[in-house]
Design a protein around this nucleic acid. Structure first.
Length: 231
DNA sequence: ACTACGATCTACT
DNA sequence: GTAGATCGTAGTG
């Protein structure tokens, strides 16, 4: 629909590098295009009552049924991937590996699955608060990975499904990045679909994650595990 | 009800 | 280089 995008937080309280909030139409596009164009934009969180965030330097596109690496690959709606099929400009937050939250932004028109995983940002706003949430880490390690990023922004499952600009999260226009600065590679950590060139990052940024692309190491099976065995 | 395993990260070797 | 953490989800029975 055409309702005006709701700005959050009050732009006058932000650094001058931060422009207007991205309109919903920005996200109602091809997922790879959105992933590319999110580079350089400003992501902010007010989770926990403090505004923190920074400049997006690394993203990954996750598509629908054609993408084996996507939560929406099965095409069936489940409780988890429901948000990916919903309206654009919403946050898709999920939990994995027993430890980490992941932040995605939903793309494509309502009913079409798509999301962009935000993998890394360059810290700009509320750095002290992010240091508090990531005790003992050098600034370079505050947000250079999706799990670290979600921790530094104070995100959890309660942020899942929130419309950008209405919950704890918002994304803002900033200085455009030149195409020469952008590199593309396979996605990180996938057992399927890792060969697709859906990872976008600013090659020169020291805040990009150290994640390797390509197939993950063969995961050792839990043979003979007593997990759930004896009582 | 039960179980395998994951869009990761850290700490050790 | 790799094992372990630790819990939500999905697939199966």
């Amino acid at each position: 629909m055409d309702a005006a995008f709701v700005a959050w937080p009050d732009p006058s309280s932000l650094p001058s590098a931060v422009g207007a909030p991205l309109p919903k139409s920005f996200f109602t596009r091809d997922t790879c295009q959105v992933a590319r164009d999110l580079l350089g934009k400003i992501l902010l969180s007010q989770a926990g009552g403090v505004i923190v965030g920074g400049r997006i330097v690394e993203t990954e596109a996750y598509l629908g049924s054609d993408d084996a690496g996507s939560h929406a690959a099965t095409k069936s709606l489940t409780k988890r991937n429901l948000v990916m099929f919903g309206p654009p400009a919403h946050a898709y937050v999920y939990f994995t590996y027993g430890n980490h939250h992941m932040l995605n932004v939903v793309t494509e028109a309502d009913g079409i699955a798509g999301a962009v995983l935000i993998r890394a940002i360059e810290p700009l706003v509320g750095i002290d608060e992010m240091r508090r949430r990531r005790v003992g880490r050098p600034d370079q390690d505050l947000t250079n990975g999706p799990g670290k990023l979600a921790a530094a922004l104070g995100l959890n499952l309660s942020d899942n499904g929130d419309r950008l600009g209405e919950g704890n999260l918002a994304v803002y226009v900033a200085q455009e990045v030149a195409s020469e600065e952008v590199a593309v590679s396979g996605r990180v950590g996938l057992s399927a679909g890792h060969e697709l060139p859906y990872r976008y990052f600013l090659e020169a940024s020291p805040y990009v994650s150290k994640g390797r692309t390509g197939p993950p190491k063969r995961r050792v099976r839990r043979i003979g595990s007593t997990r759930g065995g004896r009582k």
